[in-house]
């Protein structure tokens, strides 16, 4: 007796599931019709300003703004601090340490 009633209830539940899947728009609270993606980018630098001349790294340094030069690119040290190449060249003439963390300055990469 019990077994047959269990079987009946199982049958009922499967038929309800079939009904739900048959009409998906009724069961979902909303349908995604359109999607606009937005990408955000940033320069791959820890700080975006050259600590020596206080100009944005992706702009020419103060000296090159008045006397343009092909040398004005960005240099990264092993310490991951970045500066304009011409600013750093002037600094290391007298002191071969990073102006921000005082570690020995070793160039790890450059970027135009």
């Amino acid at each position: 007796m019990n077994n047959s009633s269990n079987a009946d209830s199982q049958e009922g539940s499967t038929s309800a599931q079939k009904q739900k899947t048959a009409n998906p728009s009724e069961s979902r609270p909303f349908v995604l019709k359109k999607w606009n993606a937005l990408a955000v980018w940033a320069w791959d630098v820890e700080c975006d300003t050259c600590a020596i001349c206080r100009v944005h790294l992706m702009e020419e340094c103060l000296r090159c703004q008045s006397e343009p030069s092909a040398e004005c690119y960005v240099v990264w040290g092993d310490c991951n601090h970045s500066f304009h190449h011409c600013c750093m060249t002037q600094w290391i003439r007298q002191n071969n340490r990073c102006p921000l963390c005082q570690k020995d300055w070793v160039v790890s990469r450059t970027s135009k």
Binding site: C53, R54, R63
Partner: peptide, 13 residues
């Protein structure tokens, strides 16, 4: 005074 010194000082002030 050099250009870099003058411009940087302006920013600092």
């Amino acid at each position: 005074m050099s250009n870099i010194a003058f411009n940087r000082l302006q920013r600092e002030c």
